[in-house]
Nucleic acid binder design. Sequence first.
DNA 1: GTCTATACCACGATAGAC
DNA 2: GTCTATCGTGGTATAGAC
Lengths: 174, 174
Amino acid sequence: MHGFHGTSMRDLAKAIELAPSALYASFPSKEHVLAELVRLGHEAHLAMFRKAVLDGGSDPADQLRALVHANAVMHATYPHIAVVVNDEMHVLNAELAAPGLARAPSGIAMLMDIIERGIAMKRFVARHPMVTAGAIGAMALRIPYWFGPSAGITIEELAAAQAALALDMVGVAR
Amino acid sequence: MHGFHGTSMRDLAKAIELAPSALYASFPSKEHVLAELVRLGHEAHLAMFRKAVLDGGSDPADQLRALVHANAVMHATYPHIAVVVNDEMHVLNAELAAPGLARAPSGIAMLMDIIERGIAMKRFVARHPMVTAGAIGAMALRIPYWFGPSAGITIEELAAAQAALALDMVGVAR
DNA sequence: GTCTATACCACGATAGAC
DNA sequence: GTCTATCGTGGTATAGAC
C-alpha cells in the first residue's frame, strides 16, 4: 500500500513474523524481493492472456472480449500483485527488471495484434489502434484503485461491462 | 519519478540548488511540500473541468467530448504534476490531504453527472455508468506513463482519439 | 534458517551564525 | 532566507551464535 520505498524490510519481516535478518536467507536484497514478485506476476499474467486468446477462438471480437474479461477478473481478484507488477516494477534496475520486461511486451503486443487483425479483417473500425489499446489496457490497470466489496457490483459484472466497453471502442456493434 | 518516499529533501534541494535546510523556510515538512503540489494540481484540474463543461454547451455528448479532450491535453502537457496528484496523494495524512480531497470528488462527479444526464435524455445508452466513468477516467490517468515525443502522435491527435473513444463507450454513434 | 546484536548510512528536521 | 553543522531515527544489510 505504500510502495517499494515506503515498505521496509522490517515491515516485511513483521508481516510474516520473522526477524528482519531471516529474510536475507531467501533474498539477497530488498530489490530481489520485489523482482521475484514482479516475475511471478508477469508470468501469471502472460499465461492468462494466452489462455484467454485461445478461448476466444478465431474471431477477433471474441478474442478481445475474452482477453478483456479475463484481464479484469485478474485485476479484481489479485489487486495487490497487479499494483506491484504495474506500478513498482520501474524501481528495479535494468538487470533485475529483465525477467519481467521479457514478458511485459507480450501482453500489450497481443492486444495490439488482435486490434490490428480485427481492422484488417474489417471486423473492427478502430481509428487509432495504439490509443485504443492503451485505453483498453488502462481500464483494467485502474481496477485495484476503486473496485472492492463496497463497489456494489460483482467481479463478473465488472468484467462483462469492461469487455462490452472494449468492443464499443473497436466499433463492434452492440 | 521515484515517488514521495523515494525522493529526499536533499534531492529537492539539489534540484533547485539550495541547501536542504533552506527548504524549511518555505515548508514546515516534506509532507507539506507534497500537499501544496497536490492542492495546486487539483485546483488547476477542477478549473479545467469546469471550463470544458461550459465550453461543451448543453448537449451531453458535446460536454463529454470537451471534458475528455481537455483532460487528455492536461495529462499529456503536465504529466509530472498529474502523476503527483493522482498517485502520491494517498501518502498524505487526513489533515494535509483535505484541501485536495475537497476538490477531487468534483471531478469524477462531474463525469458521472454528464453520463447519467445523457442516459436520462436518451442521448447515451451506457449500460453501466460507474464502470464507464471509470474507464473514461482511466484513459487519461495512464497518459503520463506512455505518451511522449516518441509516441508518434500529437497531443491534439491523442485528445481527439480519446474523446472519440469516450463517445463510443456511451453509445453515441460515430 | 532463525535468532540477537550491531555496523553503517541516509533520512527528516533543527540550531545557530550571517 | 540562506548557509554549515549536526542531531536522532530508522533504513538495509551483516556477523556470529544456535
